[in-house]
């Protein structure tokens, strides 16, 4: 399905070139107007040539200026107004959970971003569902009554979302857990498309997508009565506050944050209250040291290693 989606949204030359790559190793495609196309492939970045990868930009495919706009228009199915809110947030998510980061010229009206025009580059991030990748860590999250609230801490591109997705799947099939709510702000965890989850998040999972965490945590919690909430990429005070409130009200939360280790959270003012209240009982440090999804350590609320 990923290949079909990429074929539909990419210009013909680029779509033909990526057919020479191993789809399991392709995780990123960077297209900049007038510049060589580059790919995140395996454990590194390379340039994309007509028949595969190359280390030299001189041999790489050059994206045309209009290719970037064409990708955006195809990704939104020629309905830019329908996804303008997400474009203003810097991304669109398409079928299969493929997230397309967009850069361009922002148009402000008053204090708010009205839209983005004159697109200059896109970053196509390709998800890889790894069933079972959270099996090695889930037992460390078990509590006497279910699970501890856990925070996955990792730099970008290290596999946080893939781990979260598998945690949702595993916990959802746990007999002690009745309901899992996935607050999928960017449609990356469950990758909902036209009301269907295209990635496996478990049989007892409810997905609320394309909304703020605040909305999901307040309204969806009331309506769906979850035992566990799974959400991705906490950033900013409102996200952290929403999660802390949910944990305080008795709901277990699995979430993630961008940082190079759990120790770094202490330097972030926005995390001060959450760390002081010991809202999260488990911190899972993840990196790409031995490939994405490498678990460097699991720590408790006092930052003592449990594994």
């Amino acid at each position: 399905m990923i290949c079909e989606v990429l074929n539909n949204i990419l210009p013909q030359t680029i779509a033909s070139a990526i057919k020479f790559l191993n789809a399991d190793k392709l995780y990123e495609l960077r297209i900049r107007g007038g510049k060589p196309v580059s790919v995140g492939y395996g454990r590194g970045y390379y340039y994309l040539a007509r028949h595969g990868t190359t280390d030299s930009p001189d041999n790489a495919l050059i994206a045309r200026e209009e290719d970037v706009r064409e990708i955006v228009m195809r990704a939104c199915d020629k309905s830019l107004y329908a996804v303008n809110d997400r474009i203003c947030a810097g991304f669109i998510t398409v079928k299969g959970g493929i997230r397309i980061g967009i850069s361009g010229e922002t148009v402000f009206e008053g204090n708010r971003i009205k839209t983005v025009k004159n697109f200059t580059a896109v970053n196509v991030r390709i998800p890889h569902e790894v069933i079972g990748c959270a099996e090695s860590i889930i037992n460390s999250l078990r509590s006497p009554h279910g699970y501890f609230s856990a925070l996955i801490v990792s730099p970008p591109g290290a596999g946080k979302t893939t781990l979260l997705r598998d945690l949702a799947r595993l916990s959802s099939s746990d007999k002690q857990v009745k309901n899992v709510l996935i607050a999928d702000e960017r449609d990356e965890i469950a990758a909902s498309y036209c009301g269907k989850n295209t990635l496996n998040v478990g049989i007892n999972s409810d997905v609320v997508s394309a909304c703020t965490k605040e909305y999901a945590f307040i309204n969806a919690v009331r309506a769906m009565r979850p035992d566990i909430i799974v959400t991705d990429e906490l950033c900013g005070e409102s996200d952290v506050a929403a999660v802390v409130n949910a944990i305080a009200s008795g709901v277990c939360v699995f979430a993630s944050v961008h940082a190079d280790s759990h120790m770094r959270l202490a330097d972030m003012p926005v995390w001060e209250s959450a760390l002081k209240n010991k809202s999260f009982k488990r911190f899972i440090d993840v990196s790409a040291r031995n490939g994405p999804g490498t678990v460097d350590g699991i720590y408790d609320e006092n930052f003592v290693a449990v594994r």
């Binding site: 830019l80 107004y81 329908a82 009205k114 839209t115």
Partner: peptide, 10 residues
Amino acid sequence: SLGSTDSETQ
């Protein structure tokens, strides 16, 4: 002009 702008402009 269809589908190329935000909803207000459209």
